Amino acid sequence: MNHHIQIDESEIELKAIRSQGAGGQNVNKVSSAVHLRFDIRASSLPDEAKQKLLKQRDHRITKDGLIVIKAQQFRTQEQNREAAIKRLIELIQQSLRVEKPRRATKPTRGSRERRLKSKAQKGRTKSLRGRVKDLD
């Protein structure tokens, strides 16, 4: 079940931010930082997607259902915008991924034999520990 989610660009609020920080920062980089806000509840996402996103534990999702993503790894605002939107889409797709339950596998005969062999080996070395052998 592969969900391809279409996000309405008009639902994404992008703000250019100048981060306040210590001096000596790369001014170009700082001035191109982008702050993305996406309201889950007000979005046109399917209801199941909204519910899953609201339940997901992620530091970018606030209690009131806003996704806040900050991007400032690139020099231009345009690149940071794209990076923020890409992260938003990844977050939404991640919440829709359904984990398949793992099938219990029986240990193979080979792996069982290896385990017993190493167990026996451990037992032998343990029993030799503490004994002083005569070297005459």
Rank of each mutant, 00 (worst) to 15 (best):
H3N: 03
P107C: 02
A120G: 06
K100R: 10
L53V: 04
R103Y: 13
G24M: 10
I67E: 00
L45S: 01
E78V: 08
D136S: 11
A71C: 04
K122I: 08
Q73H: 11
T105Q: 07
A42E: 15
E48N: 10
L91M: 13
Q93A: 12
K63S: 12
L54Q: 02
D47F: 09
Q77D: 00
D8P: 06
L45G: 04
S19P: 10
P46W: 13
G110D: 00
Q77W: 03
N26W: 14
R60P: 04
P46E: 00
G123R: 04
K126T: 12
F38E: 04
S31L: 12
I85S: 01
F74W: 09
L14Q: 06
K15T: 10
I40E: 01
D58H: 14
K117L: 06
V34L: 06
S43L: 03
T62F: 07
N2K: 02
R97T: 13
R109L: 13
R114C: 01
H35W: 14
T105Y: 03
K70H: 09
L91V: 14
T62C: 08
Q25R: 05
K133Y: 11
A49H: 08
K122C: 01
K100Y: 12
A42L: 04
L91Q: 05
R60T: 13
R102Y: 14
Q25C: 10
K63L: 06
Q56Y: 13
V30L: 09
L36M: 10
L54N: 02
L116R: 03
H4D: 14
S118D: 03
L45T: 05
S118Y: 07
D39P: 00
L36D: 06
E99Q: 06
L116C: 05
Q93D: 15
V132A: 01
Q79I: 05
R41V: 12
R18M: 05
P46Y: 13
Q56I: 03
L88D: 08
